[in-house]
């Protein structure tokens, strides 16, 4: 039963992943990404991690993909097309390095002679996530708020108008 659900969702996730990088139009890439994220949410459900699956849908499939779509809409409002290929030579190199990296990861995943570490049955439920967030992971949780604050400060720094006499640092 699990396999009947897992195999199609895994195939969809893979197809989506290829779609993200192969699509010619950025909008199609974003939609392919949505497919990846939704399929992953299903596989989280299969692992009985309901809460993580819900978060996946709300945060990634919802907020982040919508953000992507907004950016694409604002940047390519007129043409609806992506930028031209600017680094043709690096494409070949990218294939080589990506293949190498895939090899390393596959070797790591398939060569796992040792069994994976086991986890508790309630892993990924709302209660368990909430509890560990406010006990074990209290300090990292608070630290994440600092990162959000820095993001806001960064937006105000980068979003303001450049100063009038803006010639510094050239040449």
């Amino acid at each position: 039963m699990e396999w009947a659900v897992f195999v199609p969702t895994a195939a969809l996730a893979l197809a989506g992943g290829v779609g993200v990088i192969a699509a010619r139009q950025p909008v199609h890439s974003a939609l392919a990404l949505l497919m990846v994220l939704a399929s992953l949410a299903v596989s989280y459900l299969l692992l009985a991690a309901q809460f993580i699956a819900v978060l996946q849908v709300i945060i990634y499939a919802g907020a982040i993909v919508v953000l992507f779509l907004f950016v694409i809409m604002l940047l390519h409002a007129r043409s609806g097309e992506g930028p031209r290929e600017k680094l043709p030579r690096q494409r070949a190199e990218a294939y080589v390095f990506a293949a190498l990296y895939l090899g390393v990861l596959l070797a790591a995943a398939l060569g796992a002679a040792a069994p994976l570490a086991s986890i508790a049955a309630e892993f990924g439920t709302a209660q368990q996530v909430g509890e560990s967030l406010f006990t074990t992971y209290l300090l990292p949780f608070e630290l994440a708020s600092v990162i959000l604050l820095v993001g806001i400060v960064a937006a105000t720094v980068l979003g303001r108008r450049p100063p009038e006499h803006a010639g510094r640092g050239k040449g």
Binding site: A154, L158, R161, A166, G167, R168
Partner: peptide, 12 residues
Amino acid sequence: PLYILAATARGN
């Protein structure tokens, strides 16, 4: 913060 500091010279 370092990424932002690198980009602080907005006119350049």
